[in-house]
Simulated scan of single mutants.
Amino acid sequence: MRKLQVQGVHHITLTGADRQSTIDFWEGVLGMPFVFEQPNLDDPEEGHLYFDPGDGRLITVFTHEQRRPVHRRTPTDPGCVHHLAFAVSRATFNQVAERLEERGVGHSGPRDRGFMDSIYFKDPLGLLIELACYKFEPPAGATHAEVLMEAHRLRLAADDDHIGEVHLADAIEALSRRRSPSLSEEREPKNPWHHAR
């Protein structure tokens, strides 16, 4: 038996309402360029709209002109999507609450998740959307997932409840050390100020 090895998210497809409300949310609120559309090839009565979430991958939405937005929360039963999370810069994150409130949209307010900050709100169809901002940048050549895996190991070793900023900082130091060789014979932390006393 062998795995079916995936290499990233190809796209996520959602069932939307009408075409214009879909464009108004995904491009007009979240800023995702509307890159192309075609019929739903399995149901030609529906449109299939494609948006770029910022990384060149795709969020796609099936639309139908007879469907209208339903504002109740989408189901969270087992097997259902709980929420979608999108990355934003710190500058954007700091503006999210104000920009949602300009539209009269309720939100959770900023939430500290230890390794990231998040804010939650519902789209016009009741799907929970998270805008998230990492508290760190990975070292050159590393990914956020690698930093989080290393931080997780450090958190467990310290018997801490969740990943915090100290784990992130130590994880970045450990990954940097492994990835970047040095001419120094030993690379332990130093205090050069004590020589000046």
Rank of each mutant, 00 (worst) to 15 (best):
A85S: 10
R111A: 04
T76E: 12
V61W: 07
G31V: 00
H64L: 12
L100P: 00
P138F: 14
W193G: 07
S176R: 14
A17N: 12
R113P: 05
P139E: 10
A140S: 13
K190G: 01
V88C: 09
L30I: 01
R73H: 10
S118Y: 09
C133G: 00
S182A: 11
G141P: 02
D161T: 14
R73Y: 13
L4Y: 12
V29I: 08
V147W: 04
I23N: 03
D42V: 08
G114A: 10
G126E: 06
I59W: 06
L84F: 05
F121L: 12
L131N: 07
P181I: 10
A169P: 04
F136Y: 06
R73A: 15
M32T: 12
H194G: 07
M32Y: 11
E137K: 00
A87N: 05
H64P: 05
F36M: 13
F93P: 03
A85T: 04
G8E: 07
I12T: 12
L49H: 02
H167T: 01
F121A: 11
A97G: 02
R153H: 13
N191G: 01
W26G: 05
R178Q: 14
Y134G: 02
E165H: 07
M1G: 15
L183F: 08
R113D: 01
G56C: 00
G8T: 08
R177H: 13
D52A: 09
T76P: 05
T15L: 10
P189M: 05
S118W: 08
P39V: 05
A171C: 06
